[in-house]
Simulated scan of single mutants.
Amino acid sequence: MCGTKLCNEHGNPVQLRGMSTHGTQWYARCLTGGSLDALADDWNADVLRVSTYVQEGGYESDPAHFTALADSLIEQASARGMYVIVDWHMLDPGDPMANLDNARRFFTDIARRHKDRDNILYEIANEPSGVSWPRIKSYAEQIIPVIRDIDADAPVLVGTRAWSSFGIPEGADESEVVNNPVDASNIMYTFHFYAASHRDDYLAVLARAADRIPVFVTEFGTQNYAGEGADDFAMSQRYLDLMADRRISWVNWNFSDDHRSGAVFRTGTCAADGPWTGTSSLKPAGVWIRDRIRTPDSFPTG
């Protein structure tokens, strides 16, 4: 970190752009050597978010399996020159404290395996909901030392209130984090948006927050908040323009062939093992986001 920016080893601000997996309990078949080659070399993505769900048939159902799966994806993405966000995808229940012991175990295991890498970012709570910022902060201040005791330097990404929105749906904004930050260094705060649902109020909070604290958009979509429905590419471009201007790194949801419009591949692509390169297998959102990862400076505000 340098100030509010994510910086490289030379101290220069960088903007990472890439994709998030869907839940690996459902869509591991979309994460093959071929698809990851395409993401790195055809899409030119420089970051993969590996989403390990905790509930919904995820980590808590088989910790060893899902740790090994995350480990394998970290290895494969790293071998292709990408950064990796290790996403602890707690969603329901929305209180991160409900999974505190599991989180300690998972991050201990992952950090021990990857402590010598310089391309890992740890996202410790995907979308807290129904809980206050002080409670999320307390969780972070218990989990961050678990990671730091093993991997002292890796950035840690902290989820914010109300589905990582700085509490906007609950009448809050970035000031609660600015005025009561997590007591740790080399951390960033996450912000999620879905352009068809989250309009100018979200955009304004993201702009203000990025001037005060380090922000990483670890999830966004061009559709509604469920990753469904029509794409709003014009609003999405306004967000991308802001993030380019402020050097805010971002990851799009999601790199799978789920039936929803927010999954980039057409249904059936993963079972057929591609094709992964080009645009023939992509939904409209996939075509749009691939273009913006490949050539981010070629698109004026839409």
Rank of each mutant, 00 (worst) to 15 (best):
D231E: 15
E174W: 12
Y189G: 08
D245G: 14
I289E: 03
T301G: 13
H192S: 00
A162S: 13
N224P: 00
F255L: 14
R208M: 07
M243K: 13
D183K: 13
T190I: 06
T267D: 05
T218R: 06
P169V: 09
N180M: 01
V264H: 02
D231C: 10
P169L: 09
P181T: 04
L206E: 07
F220Q: 03
A244V: 08
Q223N: 15
L203G: 05
S281W: 06
R266I: 13
N180R: 06
D291E: 14
L157G: 06
L203S: 04
L206C: 10
P296D: 12
A210D: 00
T222R: 09
R247M: 14
E219K: 10
R290T: 09
I168Q: 10
D297R: 12
T269V: 01
G221P: 01
S298A: 15
A162T: 09
R199K: 15
D231L: 11
T279G: 04
D257F: 12
Y194A: 05
A196R: 01
A196G: 01
N179C: 03
A172T: 02
R199Q: 15
D245R: 14
S185P: 09
R292I: 05
A244Y: 07
D231T: 11
N254D: 15
G171T: 03
N224G: 02
S298N: 13
E170K: 12
Q237E: 13
F220A: 09
D291V: 01
V156F: 00
D183H: 13
F265V: 02
S164L: 11
F166V: 00
D183P: 08
D245W: 10
D257Y: 13
S164F: 08
G286S: 07
H192K: 02
D245E: 15
G167Q: 08
H192M: 03
A244T: 12
H259W: 15
P181I: 02
A210R: 06
Y194T: 03
Y189K: 09
N186T: 12
E219Q: 11
D173N: 14
V158H: 01
P169Q: 08
V215Q: 10
H259L: 13
A210S: 13
V217G: 10
A244P: 06
M235R: 15
F299H: 15
P296N: 10
A271L: 10
D211G: 10
A195Q: 07
Q237R: 07
P169S: 07
G171R: 04
R246Q: 11
D273F: 00
P214L: 00
R208Y: 04
V158N: 01
L282K: 06
I168V: 13
S165E: 04
V264K: 00
D201R: 11
S261V: 05
R246T: 00
F216V: 14
G221N: 09
G286N: 01
Q237P: 00
T295A: 15
S197F: 02
L282R: 08
Q237A: 08
P300L: 09
D291N: 14
P169C: 05
Y225M: 15
G167D: 07
T301D: 13
F265L: 02
G268C: 04
A172I: 00
M188D: 03
P300W: 03
D232W: 00
W250T: 07
V215H: 01
D245P: 07
F191P: 06
